[in-house]
Amino acid sequence: MTTPMTTASAVSLSLLPEFPRYSLRIDPADVSAASEVLGLELPTRPGQRAATGSRLALCLGPDEWVLYTDEADAQAVEAAFAALYPVTPHSLIAISDRERTITLSGPQAAELLSTSCPRDLTAIAPGTGTRTVFDTVQIVLLRDSESDFRIEVGRSFLPHVWALLERANRELAAGL
């Protein structure tokens, strides 16, 4: 179930329900082992992502990735990494509840983000993502297409970020 936004909005916003999300930290030298377990090649440059089936991996830093999948696949991911640990130590932590995901959709989505995100959004290509800030709140920003973004925000910051987005969205709708 998604939570719809208010009516007077330029950009369609929604809050996604929780879904399986993991923080993976592993020595860069061991990335191939993790890639093998996941069945996708983990990108090694911050910002890049890779996907297979329901699995999506985004490289956040040289030794840090965030993994997304669906409920049906969660146990398989956890079991695979648990099996990997004795051979190749790493850290896989479930953070499904740590963040909430807001989707932004529409031609003005980037403009809406620019109300509080200092990044040059044209430098974030579709199919990439990054950690950055939104009004000084740390977020993970994924760009799925020219006009589709996801904000992953720490759960306790959600009310603040959501209120800012709503306010700015009404502002965009007002057109001035």
Binding site: R25, S91, I93, I95, R98, E99, G154
Partner: peptide
């Protein structure tokens, strides 16, 4: 050191 850190403040 082979050790990794993850904030789980808001997970729980």
């Amino acid at each position: 050191l082979r050790v990794w850190l993850t904030s789980v403040t808001e997970q729980w």
